[in-house]
Simulated assay, not measured.
Amino acid sequence: MNATDSTNSPSSSSSSSSPSLSLPPVTVLGLGRMGSALAATLLAAGHPTTVWNRTPGKADALAARGARAAADPGAAVAASPLVVACVLDHDALRSALAPHTAALDGVTLVNLTSGSPEQAEETAEWAAAHGARYLDGAIMTTPEGVGDAAMMFLYSGDAAAFDEHRATLAALGDPVHLGSAPGLASLYDAALLGLMWSVFAGWLHGTALVGAEKVDAAAYTPVALRWLSGAVSTFVTRYAAQVDAGAYPGDDATVDVQIATVDHLLHAAGRRGVDTALPALLKDVMVRARDAGHGDDSFASVIEVLR
C-alpha cells in the first residue's frame, strides 16, 4: 500500500530525537510521502539516518531534523549497512543504483517499492549479483500509519538479513517475514489489497442499501464491523482449513442456499434503486460453482471456480 509520490512534502506527527550512536544507522532512498515518513520515523526512533532523493530539495526538511543528506545514491548506500528504498518502481531503483553498484557489496537492501512478485524476484537477482542481501517488502498502511506497531510491514527474502535487522525494521511497524521467496511480500500485498477493496465495496453497497431507508452510515457501520469480526471471521477461519484440505462439507450453508439468499439482496437493492452489479457478480460466481457440481458444498468451494 505504498505511496511513493515524490511530489509531496514529508509527513509525520512524531517528534524527532537526536540520533543515538548506539542504534544502527539506516539509509532511506526516495523521499516521497511514504519515503519521508519512513525516514522521519527512523530519525524519531534515534537511528542515524542518511537520505537521498532524485530531487535534492526533498531532503531539506529531514536534514533540518538531523538526517544526513547524501549527494548521490552511492554515498547514501555507503553510509549504512541497511538501505531502505521506497521509490517510483523497480526500474527506477535499479537505474538510480546502477552507477554505484560497488557500494552494494555487503549491504542489506530492503525494497519497499510497490511492484509485482516477478519484479521482486528480478530485483533480488540483480541485488545478489552485486553482493547485496535482499528483502522485498510491502507497507500495509498509509504514510500516517508508519511507526504504529499495529501496522504490518510484510517482508520476504533473505531470512538471516531479516533477523539481523528486525529490531530496526520494527521502528516502522510490525515486521512480518513471510518466507525466503523474494516475491511473497508483493504477492500478499496484491491479495490483501483485493481483500480490502472487496470489503470496502461490500460495506459501501450495504451502506447504500440501508441508506435508502434513511439509516446513517455511522449507525450501520458498528453493526457491520461486529458481523465481520465475529461470525464472518469465524467462517473464514473454518473455510481456510477446507480450502487446504480440498474438501467442502456443506454443513453450515451450501452454495445452493447462498444463491437463494443473494436473490434477497438483489431484490432489496433493485427495489430501492441501489446498483445491483456487485451482488449480481457474486451470484454469478456462485452459480458457476453450482454448475461445476458444488451446489451441496460450502461457500469455500467457490475457490475451485476462482482457480
Rank of each mutant, 00 (worst) to 15 (best):
F235K: 15
A71S: 12
T261W: 08
G30Y: 04
T276F: 04
V274Q: 05
A149H: 13
A102T: 15
V257S: 07
V77Q: 05
R271I: 02
R166Q: 15
A79D: 05
Y239W: 15
P19I: 07
A127G: 01
A190E: 11
H90D: 13
G66E: 03
A102W: 14
L204V: 10
A247C: 06
G230K: 04
G32M: 00
W203F: 15
S80P: 01
L195P: 02
L281F: 12
P182M: 03
L306R: 14
D158F: 11
V51A: 07
A138Y: 12
D244R: 14
L178D: 02
H294F: 09
G295C: 05
R290Y: 10
D72A: 05
L184S: 00
L62S: 07
W126R: 13
D174Y: 11
A231C: 08
V287A: 15
D91I: 05
A170P: 02
A185P: 00
D291N: 14
L82M: 02
A245E: 07
A241Y: 03
A240K: 00
S22V: 14
T113N: 08
P249E: 13
G270E: 05
G179D: 05
H294S: 06
E122S: 15
P117N: 12
L265I: 14
D72K: 09
S180A: 09
D174I: 03
P99I: 04
V302H: 01
V255K: 06
H47N: 08
D91S: 11
G157S: 03
G211E: 09
S180H: 09
I303D: 01
V87F: 08
A92E: 09
L82H: 01
A159H: 13
P25F: 05
V287N: 10
A149T: 10
N2H: 15
L306N: 07
Y220H: 06
H177F: 05
F162P: 00
A138E: 08
